[in-house]
């Protein structure tokens, strides 16, 4: 369920360290925001699309990206054309295409674990300010585990609300769900304290 969009592969893009890819992506985003020339932006879009070919992204993933992009671009193009004119609409849509396809390319070619360790390494200089980068993996793992637990709780609470004929009431669903969520948090807190987490 939570596998993400990662697609294994051995292309140069897959093999580039996650940290470098992340930096390149941030750089690209900054450039895309500053550029106002449709020609240059179009060139960047073409380069990113070439990246998909280089990484041999499956047609399925390409289609998924294209679908997300298509809806957003169509909507934004119509809206900006109406409000700001054709030139501005083209500019905005080229920005969206460049930024969104590049970011998705990163997500498709980079494993979540690699991103986590790259961020951990990147945050290391912040250790003197009390940031604990080595806890990042633990946080991610604990949160994902909690997502599984809470999904189950949410399903049960919804069943219970339905049984009482209250399936349309937000309160009848959200309040028990939240209270059981907080109870789960207290249990997790006790378990973590018993392990000595958080006291260091």
């Amino acid at each position: 369920m939570l596998g993400g969009w990662y697609e294994p592969g051995s292309s140069p893009l897959h093999r580039t360290p996650a940290g470098w890819k992340l930096l390149a992506l941030l750089g690209l985003a900054a450039v895309v925001f500053v550029l106002r020339s449709p020609g240059w932006l179009g060139g960047i879009c073409a380069a990113v699309v070439l990246g998909y070919a280089l990484a041999r992204i499956s047609p399925r993933s390409c289609l998924r990206v294209a679908r997300t992009l298509g809806v957003l671009v169509a909507f934004m193009f119509a809206l900006q054309w109406w409000l700001l004119g054709l030139d501005a609409a083209v500019l905005v849509c080229l920005r969206i295409v460049a930024a969104l396809t590049a970011a998705n390319l990163f997500t498709i070619t980079t494993r979540v674990d690699d991103v986590v360790s790259a961020v951990e390494r990147g945050l290391r200089p912040l250790r003197r300010f009390g940031v604990r980068p080595d806890r990042l993996g633990l946080l991610v793992g604990l949160t994902l585990q909690s997502v599984t637990v809470l999904s189950k709780i949410a399903a049960e609470v919804r069943e219970a609300a339905k049984a009482r004929g209250a399936q349309r009431s937000v309160i009848a669903f959200a309040v028990p769900f939240l209270i059981r969520t907080l109870r789960h948090a207290d249990e997790l807190g006790e378990a973590l304290a018993a392990r000595g987490e958080g006291d260091r």
Partner: peptide
Amino acid sequence: LPAVDLARTVVFAAFIAVLGIFPGIY
């Protein structure tokens, strides 16, 4: 305890996620 803080933060992040995974509410 700090562990309680940590747990509440983590569980609430998961709560926000579940609000998205779960189909909409009427």
